[in-house]
């Protein structure tokens, strides 16, 4: 539904985005990852039409991005903000009317959402009287109220306590089920693994990784396993099957990390060990997004 094609954005002294392209499928949750200052916000600002790219184009449902799309995009910026002196209800009403909703429709939906998130009696409170987490909730409602097709959330969980983070996560999943497409921009990987279908990693203004979460994880597997066993036998590396990377003794059990040589399988290792020790557990070491992130970014950094 959203195609970003060869975007270049140049600021006075530095290039914020260097030939970045992305494809978003409808109904997916897309993770836009990257360290601080990588260019994520610049890209989001182009998609939300806050700024325009120097070259390249963005297509929304096949159409070149234009002002008609504003009402179909919801954006929660990383730097949250509301008018401090304005009443909550009025404020959300104002923001959603700016997105093109009628007063009646907006009021109806605000009431619905406020009830859903337990904010019924917040209508006439002022923003300055709310806690930061409460303000975040208000802002989330303001972002999704006009039922946008594309919802862009920049660091959506920062500032939420675990309970509220969970509530928001469920709302996101529900909206996603109803067909909304999401872009998450974050440098915190744990939220990505749970929610995202697809990720792109931006580093130093360039896209350095792009693909579905499963695919990426698969490419970063490196045939390494944890094996936990009982027995006096000390497992040593063998020349053509595996190499022991690490050995630990925990409460009478031994935990080893082994890396298999190419074309070897875990079954072969088990076959070798079963006669000698009592196997308790075997886990494949799957890299977390965090590992991949760090590995990729560091790798890039050395180039």
């Amino acid at each position: 539904m959203l195609s970003v094609k060869n975007i270049v954005k140049q600021y006075a002294t530095h290039r914020a985005l260097d030939n970045v392209s992305l494809e978003l499928e409808k109904g997916k949750i897309f993770g836009l990852l990257g360290p601080n200052g990588a260019g994520k916000t610049s890209l989001i600002r182009i998609i939300t039409q806050i700024t325009a790219p120097d070259s390249g184009e963005v297509l929304f449902n096949g159409e070149r991005l234009n002002s008609n799309h504003i009402s179909q995009i919801g954006y929660l910026p990383e730097e949250r903000g509301l008018y401090k002196k304005m009443e909550i209800g009025e404020q959300v009403l104002y923001l959603s009317k700016l997105k093109g909703l009628s007063t009646a429709e907006a009021t109806k939906r605000i009431k619905f959402w406020f009830e859903k998130l337990g904010m019924q009696d917040w209508w006439s409170k002022k923003v300055e009287d709310l806690s930061k987490g409460m303000q975040q909730k208000v802002q989330f409602v303001a972002t999704v109220l006009h039922q946008p097709e594309l919802i862009i959330l920049d660091e959506p969980f920062s500032g939420f306590d675990p309970v509220n983070a969970d509530i928001i996560k469920n709302e996101i999943l529900e909206l996603n089920k109803q067909g909304a497409t999401f872009i998450f921009s974050t440098h915190r990987m744990e939220s990505v693994e749970e929610l995202c279908d697809h990720i792109a990693l931006i580093h130093k203004s360039k896209k350095i990784l792009d693909g579905s979460v499963d695919e990426i994880k698969a490419t970063y597997r490196n045939n390494t396993y944890w094996i936990e066993y009982e027995g006096d036998y000390k497992v040593e590396s063998t020349e053509n099957v595996f190499e022991v990377l690490q050995t630990e003794n925990v409460k009478g059990k031994t935990l080893i990390k082994v890396k298999l040589h190419e074309n070897r399988t875990a079954n072969e290792v088990l076959a070798m060990l079963l006669p000698k020790v009592n196997i308790h557990r075997l886990d494949e070491v799957i890299p977390t997004m965090n590992d991949i992130f760090i590995k990729t970014v560091k790798g890039e950094g050395h180039e």
Binding site: Q49, I50, S67, I70, I73, P77, G81, K84
Partner: peptide, 16 residues
Amino acid sequence: EEKTSRIIEVMISSVK
């Protein structure tokens, strides 16, 4: 005020 309260980004994602 709009700048320091950071509402500006929300606003200009809706209006020019």
